[in-house]
Design a protein around this nucleic acid. Sequence first.
DNA 1: TTTTGAGTTGTTCGA
DNA 2: GTCGAACAACTCAAA
Length: 478
Amino acid sequence: MPPESAPVILWFRRDLRLADNPALNEAAASGRPVIPIYIHQPEAAGEWAEGGASRWWLHHSLESLGRSLAALGTPLRLLRGPADRVLPQLAQETGATSVLWNRRTEPWANQQDTIIAAELKALGITPRSFNAALLFQSGAIVSQSGRPFKVFTPFWKACLAAPPPAPPLPAPTTLRPWGGALAVEDLDQWGLLPTKPDWACGLRQSWQPGEAAAQSRLAEFLSEGVTQYAGNRDVPAQPGTSRLSPHLHFGEISPRQIFHAIRRTAEPGQGSERFLAELGWREFSAHLLHDCPDLPERPLRPEFERLAWRHDTDGLRAWQQGRTGYPLVDAGMRQLWATGWMHNRVRMVTASFLVKDLLVRWQEGEAWFWDTLVDADLASNAASWQWVAGCGADAAPFFRVFNPVLQGEKFDPKGRYVRQWCPELANLPDKWLHQPWRAPAQVLRQAGVVLGETYPVPLVDHDQARKRALAAFAELKA
DNA sequence: TTTTGAGTTGTTCGA
DNA sequence: GTCGAACAACTCAAA
């Protein structure tokens, strides 16, 4: 087969976009026929296979990418893993001379990449991989001593002082199709969508997966959100955050596109710098996971394994279902269940409640978020849970225990958020909304609230729970 | 090597 | 009601 007509395989992963996609760009520029594929391999990720909400998103994102590629004249072919078996086989079957892909951030994926690259080379096929998920390749940003940063602020300063990420690549306008035939799978047969019961109604109402939707979300944020970001980002009732996280996770939009769009369009100011720092946290988490592959399972500070964690299955379940009796916590957990997303401020409050008020291991919360978040990301999820628990990098001081009542009064003073997600409390006056158990009987009656019936009695007394947590954490030092 | 300053996101207590 | 201090000690990063 003449080399010009030998196809290249383009392996899509968490880079489900056409624009700023280095592997795709390289494939298009090669002038060869391109075979775009996606490999479904939940087994390869072990216990970190996509959770329920992520599977829903993935289904629709693959559909969307498939349509975009079809418009370029090439279908997206769906295959089943494991990739280290599928890719060498496919390359030989099609006579491909190279396989291109963008790297992921998960340790299991990187291990698999190494194996695949070796297998392909042994067959005389060229593997090429690119960084498309991060502003800075993992391992590229190190302190002056050459060691990975363990503290965010100096890490991010070093990022901003480094040569800026390259400007995003345009989407290719043409892609040479490959005419061969392949046995492929059917997306609907992968069972990514929930059926019995279909709990995805709220997800459908809240989200539009796909590259085009990601771009409109960014455009909207640039025109309306970013200047007010610093002030609004902490108010869960307001659409003050970008809501780009699931799009970023699935690679429907790249961090470089966001970084350069902010720098180009947004007025320099607190809003845009604050927002860029959030991209920085995403980078920092990925770097941490790269450096500590067991970040999702083991506390960065090993002594936290010894903490007097409680085995409270009832408490865990009440937390998951949004019936802890603390309105802000319950509102957050219900928003998560209904929409696959929770406001960042409320993530901190709910996480602090599980880990400190209930003394349930952070890994339990991490697992629940993994299953229910549409933006579930191994690095960010693990790093953030460890941060809240106090065992992570740059950890919160042990005495920082969120008070769910105070947080509610501070960040949801009019109760718009709580009333939306806990409608059974809607008629309570603002003063008692975040602490219904302290409301006079008369007030409760007028609002139609019967504690223990229409809304739960608090699972724990926060003051006591706080003291219990501080004592448990103090034990670690002893 | 030693030293110094600093560390996303908070709460409570007492004046 | 508001305000500042206290809440541990440690690790990290850089000088």
